[in-house]
């Protein structure tokens, strides 16, 4: 590895614009993620966090700019990117067991007519073990708790043996213990130099548990270490009138008009000090 940041970057975005039908949800994003780094992607609803992930995995066409993975554009069966979708995107009523779902992580390495081999079963067993759900492997995914369901999809992502792992809102809709379990897993992934991008509403976790934060709102507003990103200027730029500054404390009203499914207010406080101590 040499000293130049761009040369050692594992995942690089160069002027990336992406979105649905005509109007881009995300414009001109340039950032490079070093090998093995863990990045929290934060920003208001509709800021383009999910769009960014979908562009990275090729679900949405990149309209301009390019994505480079290890210096080359992604694509192909052996793509080392794994993606854990938001839980609303999964059909929990589908008749599959935990083992079936985790085995799907191996399908990319299996040809069209090939059946899983012993080596694939061993990887699946290891991933189930690592997430502590080996005893649930014969259960249908619809019978599990929210935290267990998340672990199934994390196990599936690990079964892909990825170099880059994308987690879309993994802290939403799970309880505190599931959240801590996930943070513990992230710490282990750090030791294995797996690059991780996590989108989240949880600014506190982003600030305390990640070395890099990317603040998005249709474009990249700031990217770097949390203290450099979470400045009043940047937050105002990202959240506009939703950000309220109270004597060294930032309150962001992230309650989302039109957001279906939960009636409760999301009020996230973020107690980073803005001035010198």
């Amino acid at each position: 590895m040499n000293g130049a940041a761009s040369a050692s970057a594992y995942l690089a975005l160069e002027g990336v614009s992406a979105g649905y039908d005509g109007r881009p949800a995300l414009t001109d994003v340039t950032m490079s993620v070093p090998h093995g780094a863990q990045v929290a992607i934060v920003g208001p609803n509709g800021a383009g966090k999910s769009t960014l992930f979908k562009a990275l995995v090729g679900l949405l066409p990149v309209k301009s700019g390019r994505v480079l993975l290890h210096g080359r554009p992604p694509g192909g069966q052996t793509d080392p990117i794994a993606y854990v979708p938001q839980r609303e995107e999964i059909d929990w009523g589908f008749p599959v067991t935990v083992h079936d779902v985790v085995m799907m992580g191996r399908y990319g390495r299996l040809g069209w007519l090939r059946r899983p081999r012993q080596a694939d079963r061993e990887v699946v067993a290891r991933c189930l073990e690592e997430l502590g759900i080996a005893d649930l492997e014969r259960r249908a995914i619809g019978e599990l708790s929210g935290g267990q369901q998340q672990r199934v999809f994390l196990a599936r992502a690990l079964a892909q043996e990825p170099h880059v792992l994308l987690l879309d809102e993994p802290f939403t809709g799970v309880d505190v213990s599931a959240r801590e379990a996930l943070l513990t897993l992230l710490a282990r992934l750090r030791e294995r130099s797996i690059t991780v991008l996590v989108s989240t509403h949880d600014m506190e976790t982003a600030a305390r548990r990640f070395e890099l934060v990317a603040l998005l709102n249709k474009r990249l507003i700031a990217y770097g270490a949390p203290p450099d990103v979470f400045t009043p200027d940047h937050l105002t730029e990202a959240f506009g009138g939703q950000a309220l500054f109270l004597d060294g404390m930032v309150v962001i009203d992230q309650c989302c008009p039109g957001h279906v499914g939960d009636g409760e207010e999301h009020r996230h406080t973020h107690d980073r000090r803005t001035g010198p101590r």
């Binding site: 995995v57 090729g58 679900l59 069966q77 793509d79 990117i81 993606y83 979708p85 995107e89 999964i90 059909d91 589908f94 599959v96 779902v101 799907m104 399908y107 990319g108």
Partner: peptide, 9 residues
């Protein structure tokens, strides 16, 4: 079950 993963793979 998961057209997204199918696409990625």
């Amino acid at each position: 079950f998961d057209p997204v993963l199918a696409h990625m793979l």
